[in-house]
């Protein structure tokens, strides 16, 4: 099991289009990290007259100490689910931050160093529910974030969903997790030295 003893201001920005479930993803991820993992977390979002199709974004700050400033200033992990979001927020990333993209929708990544999965296609083809795309992303991020625990994330996801769409979303989560495991590689190699991590057997 992965455990973190110290983590200071890890900043995540989730961005994409309205209707992709970006804000819901932020709420579930933030809630799981805050309540299930016991971190200090702030989740903020841009509010605007954004209907479906407009830009959408939410910031999470994760820390083992109380958080003063609640917005992201230099992003450790940027998730961009649209080309526009990727273009807009790439410049807010830390020099060694990680970029995760929706590889079908972000056709022109701003850098060669990125991690991509066709989240929407996976949700549509493998799960049969395109709306479960954000659960696929959550699964992938759970693999990627060295301090995130799979069982806790799953539980938080389940607690946020109405019963009738629960099964599909849990499947989507597992799909995202396994796809990320297959394509992204092991997290410790990705996050060199960000936080003090100790691997314990039995994950």
């Amino acid at each position: 099991m992965k455990r973190f003893t110290a983590l200071e201001r890890f900043e995540i920005r989730l961005s994409g289009l309205g209707g992709q479930g970006v804000i819901t993803l932020g709420k579930v991820l933030g809630g799981a990290l805050a309540l299930g993992h016991g971190f200090h977390v702030t989740q903020t979002q841009s509010y605007g007259p954004e209907a479906r199709g407009g830009a959408s974004r939410t910031d999470l700050v994760v820390s083992t100490v109380p958080i003063s400033y609640p917005k992201a200033e230099s992003v450790d992990l940027l998730v961009a689910l649209s080309q526009e979001a990727c273009n807009t927020y790439y410049r807010n990333m830390k020099p060694r931050g990680i970029l995760v993209i929706e590889s079908d929708l972000v056709r022109q990544p701003p850098s060669n160093f990125y991690l991509g999965l066709p989240f929407t296609r996976l949700a549509r083809d493998k799960i049969g529910v395109p709306q479960a795309m954000n659960s696929v992303v959550l699964g992938a991020l759970t693999w990627l974030l060295p301090f995130a625990r799979q069982a806790v994330m799953k539980k938080a996801l389940a607690a946020s969903l109405p019963a009738k769409v629960l099964d599909k979303n849990l499947k989507a989560f597992s799909l995202g997790y396994s796809q990320a495991k297959k394509h992204f590689g092991p997290p410790p190699a990705l996050w060199d030295g960000n936080g003090d991590e100790t691997e314990e057997p039995g994950d």
Partner: peptide
């Protein structure tokens, strides 16, 4: 959120965890 009932989720969750 979404008018969800935690009790019914718990039963489902126990099956997948």
């Amino acid at each position: 959120p979404n008018g969800h009932d935690p009790a019914s989720t718990k039963a489902k969750l126990e099956g997948v965890e």
